[in-house]
Simulated scan of single mutants.
Amino acid sequence: MCAASTPADDGSAPNGGEHLVLEGRVERRPLGQGTKSAHQGFVLVLADGSWHALRRAGGNAYVDPAFEAMEGRRVQLRGKLRPNFFLVDGIDEPND
């Protein structure tokens, strides 16, 4: 999984364009290795070890202070799953 350009919101996302809530830990990882867009980006690591590259709606794909502030923390993110990233439109701290 790696970051890519934002596809149109045409409902062609794997979940049919429905909003999801995912919970996990925000980490910084190398993304897009072997491409011109290789960079250190943020991912959400789920409990099963799988992960999704993160992109905030309206945010910069390469630098995002909101994800930077969440690095290392467990969060709940609301958004839409895209082929190469999770497009985040809401952020919550989980209740422990």
Rank of each mutant, 00 (worst) to 15 (best):
G17N: 11
D89H: 14
E23V: 14
F85P: 01
D9K: 14
R29S: 03
N84P: 00
V88H: 02
A57N: 12
P30Q: 11
E23L: 03
Y62A: 11
G24I: 01
A4N: 07
G34D: 08
G24C: 02
F67R: 00
A3V: 12
G24H: 02
G49L: 10
R73V: 03
D64R: 05
Q33Y: 04
R29H: 13
N60I: 10
N15H: 14
Q76N: 09
G34L: 10
W51E: 15
E18G: 13
A69E: 15
E23T: 15
G17D: 05
E27Q: 14
S5E: 09
A8E: 10
L77N: 01
R56C: 01
D89M: 10
F86Y: 12
G16Q: 04
P14C: 13
A66M: 11
G79C: 05
A61I: 08
C2Q: 14
L31M: 14
D96V: 08
P14T: 08
L44K: 04
D9F: 08
H19V: 01
P30Y: 05
V75C: 02
A66Y: 05
P7W: 13
P83C: 09
G79L: 10
N60D: 15
V63P: 00
R74E: 09
D9V: 05
E23S: 15
L77E: 00
D64V: 09
E68H: 09
V63F: 06
F67Y: 05
D48N: 15
A13W: 03
A3N: 05
R56F: 11
